[in-house]
């Protein structure tokens, strides 16, 4: 059975468990999703399920997207994402709801991290920066040496340095599900998930359990 959903980050808060301990919770508006396409090893070379999320105005989608959804008489859906699943046990047009997850499950959540813009090495890669005292000037957050001397005489490709940070795909692994509300399509996981509020998230069964 496929354990995967597309959701939207609502925000964070804290709730109390039975023992009265406050636990940090991220709320996710998850689903209802629809199976828009099933990938099979015969046809596509791998097995996966394509899910769609968020109903949209038809004019927001292209004709190709609308036609793709119309095959299974599905409403216009804004986000389509694929989930790998050996035996999905689903056919095209089926709805997928939060009830695929239960309290206590471990999930991986994939999102797009908040953009930080162009950042230096200290923030981006936790470089130590230079000494703060002993007559230093302009060296406090400098990256230091980037390469060797005459040989090789250049900076190796892929070396860490200042540059654009954030706005990339990030996976948070092994988050515990603490809340499932089928009626309001709400999912609560313990801890933080990547991205801003309102960001699109993929929720999958945890790979490393």
């Amino acid at each position: 059975m496929l354990k995967g959903l597309i959701g939207k980050k609502v925000g964070m808060t804290q709730i109390f468990d039975e023992a009265g301990v406050a636990i940090p919770v991220t709320l996710i508006e998850a689903g209802p999703c629809y199976v828009t396409q099933v990938r099979t090893p015969d046809k596509d070379g791998y097995s996966a399920v394509q899910l769609g999320f968020v109903e949209a105005k038809p004019k927001r989608l292209s004709g190709g997207q609308l036609g793709h959804l119309k095959r299974n008489n599905l409403p216009p859906l804004r986000f389509l994402r694929e989930f790998r699943a050996k035996e999905p046990g689903l056919s095209e047009g089926d709805p997928v709801k939060v009830s695929v997850f239960a309290v206590g499950d471990a999930v991986d959540v994939v999102g797009t991290s908040k953009g930080k813009g162009f950042q230096g090495g200290v923030k981006r890669y936790h470089f130590r920066g230079g000494p703060k005292t002993h007559g230093q000037s302009d060296r406090h957050r400098a990256p230091g040496a980037r390469s060797s001397g005459t040989t090789p005489g250049r900076v190796y490709k892929g070396s860490r340095g200042p540059g654009h940070m954030g706005s990339e795909r990030v996976t948070t692994q092994n988050l515990k599900v603490v809340l499932v509300d089928e009626e309001r399509n709400l999912l609560g996981v313990r801890g933080a998930v990547p991205g801003a509020k309102g960001g699109i998230l993929l929720i999958k069964e945890a790979r490393k359990q």
């Binding site: 609502v10 925000g11 964070m12 808060t13 804290q14 709730i15 109390f16 919770v25 709320l27 508006e29 809340l179 509300d181 309001r184 709400l186 609560g188 509020k197 309102g198």
Partner: peptide, 13 residues
């Protein structure tokens, strides 16, 4: 429901 209302609804009274 707005995000704020959703968050409020799961918090303790």
């Amino acid at each position: 429901m707005s995000n704020q209302e959703l968050l409020k609804s799961v918090e303790a009274p």
